[in-house]
């Protein structure tokens, strides 16, 4: 492993009871890299993001974030399962955008973005507000500050959710099918924001998506999963135009048809 790796999965496996979802997974992500994870339903894409976000534990193997063990910590020279505190330290660098937004319905749009800054970073109120307004304007919602999530369209909710995650200045952003719960006409407003992020920031980004054309322009590298293993990975042009593997080809065919 080189020192300049942002995320590493090393022999990582995950099982739910008898069902093995990830099998001895090995992959590395460089700082600033934009990666798309594609693959059939149930192949384990969401699980990878959830393990990184500490929403799901690892069954065996290791995950490192910026060289630090995520699910383990060192105690007296031994690697032991991570404590809640250790998880909190490491995941401070990671933000996530969910398929179903998960905004806080009891808070206004503005508060959705300011409160997490205050609570988890201790940012003072005026600075938090300034940052929130700037981010909400960036995602095109500067006129909705006092609205509540229940008053927004799906596309607007997802843009608030992106602003909320960005407000904590994560170095890694995870997106789990951010547009798949949206009406088709609302997809592009969210993709536009993500396109902008991909071009203008040096955040490391992992995107799980079924939007193949977006994956192609968004990512530096595409990883194709099936049944918990990496079948093939490479530059988007190679994966989409010249897939080496039969399974990749079959999978992509369904999207063209």
């Amino acid at each position: 492993m080189n020192d300049n790796t942002m995320i590493s999965f090393e022999n990582a496996s995950k099982s739910y009871g008898a069902l093995q979802v990830l099998r001895n997974l090995n992959f590395h992500v460089d700082p600033g890299e934009k990666i798309s994870l594609i693959g059939p339903s149930g192949s384990g894409k969401t699980t990878i993001l959830r393990i990184l976000m500490t929403l799901e534990s690892l069954t065996s193997g290791y995950v490192l974030v910026d060289g630090q063990q995520l699910w383990h910590e060192e105690k007296q020279g031994q690697l032991v399962p991570a404590s809640e505190k250790h998880l909190q330290n490491v995941r401070a660098d990671i933000g996530m955008v969910f398929q179903h937004f998960n905004l806080f319905p009891h808070l206004s749009v503005l508060k959705n973005v300011t409160e997490p800054q205050r609570i988890s970073r201790g940012v003072a109120a005026p600075e938090a507000k300034e940052a929130a307004v700037e981010l909400l304007e960036m995602v095109g919602l500067g006129d909705k500050l006092d609205h509540y999530p229940g008053q927004l369209s799906g596309g607007q909710k997802q843009r608030v959710a992106i602003a909320r995650a960005l407000a904590l200045k994560p170095r890694i952003m995870l997106f789990d099918e951010p547009t798949s719960a949206l009406d088709p006409e609302l997809v592009s407003e969210v993709l536009n924001v993500m396109r902008k992020l991909a071009h203008e920031t040096d955040m490391t980004m992992l995107l799980v998506t079924h939007e193949m054309s977006f994956a192609r322009e968004f990512s530096d590298r595409v990883i194709f999963f099936d049944k918990g293993v990496i079948v093939e990975q490479g530059a988007p042009e190679q994966i989409f135009q010249n897939p080496c593997e039969e399974r990749t080809r079959n999978f992509l065919h369904k999207f063209i048809a």
């Binding site: 933000g95 988890s120 904590l168």
Partner: peptide, 14 residues
């Protein structure tokens, strides 16, 4: 909703 707790974890709340 369980998603609320997950959002909190992603925002690094205790």
């Amino acid at each position: 909703d369980r998603g609320q707790r997950e959002a909190c974890a992603a925002l690094n709340y205790t």
